[in-house]
Design a protein around this nucleic acid. Structure first.
Lengths: 242, 242
DNA sequence: CGTCGGGTTGATAACTTTCAAATTTCGTGG
DNA sequence: CCACGAAATTTGAAAGTTATCAACCCGACG
């Protein structure tokens, strides 16, 4: 795949117009390609880690484990997302990052990243924008866990993933491919897998959306947005170019 | 209060040794003192805001509102915390920040902050550390909402606040002053105020902690830590000085 | 084949909210 | 200084939501 069409490039171009030199640097960052199988740990909680990955293909999740074995998924990452940006700043990772499909990534050494930042301010702004957007998504997730019902929360997650995938050309208002299991959904939504199953059934029976065979289908997009209280403001942050 | 003893200074010094010039810059940042009454909006969701505040005295909370009026508090801020750092980067705030007591702050214009960053790298590292620590707290809060019971979550919040206050010399293992109402606790914990009340009663009856008249008292600190699954790792992040 | 990781469903239990009301606390005006 | 009303806390009873436990089904895969 030409770098011009990489998910990260697509995503950035929506928010910052990229110059030729920007594209050149971006191509440079995409040079070291690697693949990992499903269920592979990219970042291990408590361990030092200094590589950053640009996710090109496949899905990943970041999560924390509690002492009693319970797991909470903090976020899913999809193509175009950057993994491990925080660990450039912190020596020790405070959470896990694990693949949930086979993935393709570009590995970026932290020096490369820093020099890219220094040389192409526009790209730096774009990546910072991405990082802050991710933080906003975590906050929205927190709000959902605290104040939305299981059904609203589930609908919200699927809508957010849809909006994110749309940005990299992988989803529409009709639906998208989604490799999540009901166990993964449960750990993200703070529910049990059994209850996720019932919620999905209910959404299907109400003809709002269906999730079968790795495909999310929106049956009534507008009604679903209304049910979830989905407001894209937090995804469409306007960045200050001060 | 001499700036040397300001909560922010205390907090930073735990993690980065500050030089004389660092102290001078810090004093400069503390120059423009302002006070606000209880229930005052410092940052309004959807509005542009370009001031950063260093909280010197009193408590503040940041929260989001849902369309149906439900509220979720994302975090409380205590003396030494910095307010509105994110809004230097983003034009539009995606959440509210409101005082929950009368407060004293130092207002910092974003140019001042940026020049302080440029001139005193050690201070910059310290402030970045603070920002990332805050992000880690949000993640831990999310984990609690998703996977901890009401009781565990409540205990965890009080322990975290205790640890944070301890860092600025305002709390010990015995307890601390805490101006939160049960409504505020409820909106932070994703519960109703009624249920918060019952949880507090239970913690009191189990002789783990009590919360009365604006004072948190730890009755059995170790047992409480165990119950909450409280692990300070996420608060004691080790920063990379790369 | 046999097993194993999903997915699905039912019955029951546990936890949390909702609704209602009484009590206490606290700031303010008289 | 007291009285008043508003806000916060406390408690009980009933309803609603979600978890737990226990099956059973199915397709992939060694």
């Amino acid at each position: 795949m030409p770098v011009r069409d990489s998910p990260l490039t697509k995503k950035l171009e929506v928010f910052v117009p990229l110059s030729e030199p920007d594209h050149a640097v971006l191509a440079e960052l995409h040079r070291r390609r690697r693949t990992f199988p499903n269920r592979h740990d990219l970042v291990h909680q408590g361990e030092a880690n200094h590589s950053v990955y640009i996710l090109a293909k496949g899905w990943v999740c970041s999560y924390k484990l509690l002492a009693d074995g319970k797991r909470q998924i903090v976020d899913f990452q999809i193509p175009g997302d950057i993994l491990g940006l925080r660990s450039v700043l912190f020596r020790i990772a405070d959470h896990f990052v694990q693949t949930i499909t086979d993935v393709e990534v570009s590995e970026v050494k932290d020096e490369e990243l820093l020099s890219a930042f220094a040389n192409t301010p526009r790209l730096a702004v774009g990546l910072l924008w991405g990082a802050s957007r991710e933080e906003a998504m975590v906050v929205e997730h927190l709000v959902g866990l605290g104040r939305r019902s299981a059904t609203e929360r589930t609908a919200h997650l699927f809508l957010e993933l849809g909006a994110r995938l749309h940005l990299v050309g992988m989803g529409t208002k009709d639906g998208y491919e989604c490799p999540l299991s009901q166990y993964l959904l449960a750990d993200a939504l703070g529910l049990t897998a059994v209850h996720v199953n019932r919620v999905l059934r209910q959404l299907r029976e109400r003809k709002l959306m269906s999730f079968h065979n790795g495909y999310v289908e929106f049956l009534d997009f507008d009604a679903l947005v209304k049910l979830a209280g989905f407001d894209t403001d937090y995804l469409d942050q306007d960045i200050s170019l001060a």
